[in-house]
Amino acid sequence: MTTLQIVFLIIAAITLVSACLVVMTRKIMHAALWLVLSLMGVAMVYATLQSGFYAVVQVLVYIGAISTLIIFAVMMTRNVMEDVGPQSNRGWGLALVGSLILFAGTSAILLTWDKAQTVLQEIPAVNGENIQMLGLALVDPMGFLIPFEVASVLLLAALVAAIFLTADIKRSRS
């Protein structure tokens, strides 16, 4: 066991435990805070994959923006679900069994697939995460220009839709 493996196992344990608490804890506000810890663990997993850029993007986008939005929504809609009483619906047993079966099947396939046993070595910086090449590939018409533009149109549409849904148009007209 190398040091990196031990570090990975610790990070994975923290992430999975806090993810379990996200889906099981009673108070929705606590679930949102556990979600932040879980996303932080995922950012550290990106760092162990030598993907420092995506670790930073994860912290900025997920922890900085998305979890702030979620906590905002939790605080706005707080008085609906009182923190006592059941937080899961009647079919939770079926959901638990289904998730466990999916996990067992996926792990069984992954443990028998020999390519998945490849040990990830440290890749040299030339072949690694090259931000300049990523930026050039995103604006190259032979590369990923169209997916990039589609993603920006999607973000614009989401922006317009979010404003349209939350703004109270009828009330502001009268």
Binding site: T2, L4, Q5, F8, A12, T15, L16, A19, C20, V22, V23, V42, V45, T48, L49, A95, L96, G98, S99, L100, L102, F103, T106, S107, L110, L111, W113, K115, A116, Q117, T118, V119, L120, Q121, E122
Partner: peptide, 21 residues
């Protein structure tokens, strides 16, 4: 270093927890 399957099993576990949620 870390085998690829560790990452894949970790992400499968995270996916199943999210699915249960």
């Amino acid at each position: 270093m870390i085998p690829l399957s560790w990452y894949l099993i970790f992400s499968a576990a995270l996916f199943c927890i999210g699915l249960y949620g």
